[in-house]
């Protein structure tokens, strides 16, 4: 069995990126939209790791970058979920369509 190469991993990460983007634009549930963003971030992580392993094995920037991205994504998700909970309290819903007071 052959182990996957750079192309396969890049294909997966690009697919994840666009799945995440599609989800972000089409899903109406705020939690799902947040999950879509996490998908995009994970595709970036895959990218960094793959480039680090296959293209620049002597430059560890990619690996460190991934660690930081995971930490920051957690912080971002924490704030986003706090805001969503507050939105739920005032709107009784986590649907994007319910938050439509501000327009034009």
């Amino acid at each position: 069995m052959t182990s996957p190469g750079l192309e396969q991993i890049l294909f997966i990460s690009a697919a994840l990126f666009f799945i995440g983007m599609y989800g972000f634009f089409t899903r109406r549930n705020l939690i799902t939209m947040l999950m879509s963003i996490e998908l995009i971030l994970n595709s970036v992580n895959l990218n960094f790791i793959a480039f680090n392993k296959y293209v620049w094995p002597d430059k560890m920037d990619g690996l460190f970058f991934t660690l930081f991205i995971i930490a920051i994504a957690a912080a971002e998700a924490a704030v986003a979920i706090a805001i969503i909970i507050n939105l739920y309290r005032s709107h009784q819903s986590v649907d994007v369509e319910s938050a439509e007071n501000l327009k034009y």
Binding site: L30, L34, A80, E100, N101, L102
Partner: peptide
Amino acid sequence: KSASEGAMKLIFISA
């Protein structure tokens, strides 16, 4: 109400 809506838009866009 509008504050939470604006904040939601801001955090999602910036993320």
